[in-house]
Design a protein around this nucleic acid. Structure first.
Lengths: 337, 337
DNA sequence: TTGTAGGCGTTATCAC
DNA sequence: GTGATAACGCCTACAA
């Protein structure tokens, strides 16, 4: 291993026969440097393979050019077959890449991990912190914001102690469209597999279900899952027990909808003839399910990009960052309903 | 936003009525501090909400306590439905979390992204760099190693200019087991959908196929894909064109195997009656395919954990890091073959 | 056991 | 346009 000693500004300056200050100017692209000197410095930089020391630099600039994305989940959960996180990471990543900022991904499922994340952010490792999904009344976003760290959330945070700007999608609107579609096509016993009620996404999708059915004067039937496929299977069985005559089910996630499809098949129900099924997400796989899944598309990648864009504005000191941005959802009709 | 001024060591020292050095000792857990003073300092730290400035700290310690994992792919690819990356990230993450190191994920699909990664690592942003998968003769691992940065790869690198330690799985052995299983069950016209030939994983799996069939004196039929489901569909159609009587196919990834299953179904072939199918990976979804997929299980998560463990040893200066670690693979027999 | 002082590699503010 | 020089916040001999 050729452990070449790392050259410093000083070394470059000596080699180019100028002062440290001048080298610094060249490295940082200042325009007030004579062409000949600039060239000499550039050559010295190349010859020595000089790269500025990030620690020293950010000690004085108070900038790191990297931004954290917190996934308040265990790695197991983040990279399960739930494609929510990949989609949002992809969106955030593409936007930050364009801005030449480094994305630092942090999974914080445990309490210890969470504490580490806090320390990491407060220690100034990153210029700003984005949250990918929030459970319950998470105090961390507010805590960091109070520390003066730029913060932005994907999904409306449940507490807004210092209000933190957020990006979310129109959960209730999408669900309403789904339920109305079911009603229009003649369904009358419409059940739902709700998402976890400690997350805003879970709550608001259930609200959409509730409000739309009540407006139509139709009965409600609710069982709660946790967005996973397995919970969808269990919930669907439960629903069939409670009302063997149900003719439709709205699942608050595509994965739960897939679980429901499986449970219905095992119970001898045909989809959509006996029971119509609608999901929420519109993941790629939902085009290939049997039957292809009717679902509410939410623009997760776009939410990620938007969040990153607003974060960049926040960091640049732009005062015009809106407190909330709500992206539209859309019903995608396929064969299952 | 309550932009509280960030307290420094100096502020804590004043408040506790001691010197900066003493505060530093307490913060860093030195044992040579009187209990009473330690307590006073700790109180001051808590009251002020002091957290050490990472830049200042690493400027002197030359340590950042964070480690990069490079995914030499675009975000689109990393978070496609290919579950390789999630699995390795999960493995690495769990191991680093236990060591209280921060994992910095970097996706570098473009040339620009790649340059950024290099700068980032050389600038001393991280204590070491792990590579999650390598395309062709990638010079970056060697380049960083030559700079004195601890480097380790998942998957054998094709160039070993300065030899970089790596963790890999027994590709050829796993494939051999799969092919022998097919032969034992009477298959004689065994085709393969190979992986990309610019990656060692693609190459070695094809070698395993080649060697085993040749040893058995059976004919070979090769079409190349790129590990994705779609490429599996295309490749399977191609294979059926070339040899309508083939009775088995080994796909170098589970996704390609799933594509093959679909193409075979569309072509009216029954699996496994007409054509046996074996994949490579053993992703979760392969238990649920129709029929459930026989496949070669590779311990991706374990590879990630191992890589992280070796990286920690490398960083700690342990001279005993082995140049290579090869993990075993295992044939998982289900219904498709 | 505690304090003093020097230095880590940059950037930025001044003079020149 | 260029060069000293003082921070930036922390760690760590070394001295007391």
């Amino acid at each position: 291993m050729t452990t070449r000693e790392r050259p410093t500004l000083e070394a470059v300056a000596r080699r180019a026969g100028v002062s440290r200050a001048t080298v610094s100017r060249v490295v940082n692209g200042s325009t007030t440097v004579a062409a000949s000197i600039r060239e000499a410095v550039t050559r010295a930089v190349d010859e020595l393979g000089y790269v500025p020391n990030q620690a020293a630099r950010s000690l004085v600039t108070r900038q790191t050019d990297s931004i954290a994305l917190i996934l308040p989940e265990t790695a197991n959960r983040v990279f399960s077959d739930d494609l929510f996180f990949p989609a949002i990471i992809r969106g955030v990543g593409s936007e930050l890449e364009a801005a030449d900022k480094q994305l630092v991904l942090m999974m914080a499922g445990s309490a210890a991990g969470y504490a580490r994340v806090e320390r990491y952010a407060v220690a100034g490792h990153v210029d700003g912190v984005m949250f990918a999904s929030i459970h319950g009344a998470d105090p961390l976003p507010g805590l960091l914001a109070r520390r003066g760290i730029p913060v932005i959330c994907s999904g409306r945070p449940m507490i807004a102690d210092p209000p933190v700007p957020y990006v979310d999608v129109d959960h209730a609107g999408g669900v309403a469209a789904a339920i109305r579609h079911l009603i229009t096509s003649g369904r009358r016993r419409i059940a739902t597999i709700a998402g976890p009620q400690d997350m805003v996404a879970g709550l608001e999708r259930l609200t959409g279900y509730h409000d739309t059915l009540r407006a139509a004067g139709l009965p409600e039937l609710v069982v709660t899952g946790d967005f996973t496929r397995d919970s969808g299977i269990t919930a669907m069985r439960d629903l069939l027990d409670r009302d063997p005559d149900l003719d439709a089910v709205f699942a608050a996630s595509d994965l739960m909808a897939h679980g429901a499809l499986q449970a219905l098949r095992n119970a001898g129900r045909r989809v959509p003839e006996d029971v119509a099924v609608i999901g929420f997400d519109d993941f790629e796989v939902s085009r290939y399910s049997d039957p292809p899944l009717t679902t509410v598309r939410q623009p997760i990648g776009e939410a990620g990009r938007t969040m990153a864009r607003e974060m960049l504005r926040l960091i640049s000191g732009d005062p015009g960052v809106p407190p909330a941005i709500i992206l539209p959802t859309e019903l995608i009709v396929r064969a299952s309903a």
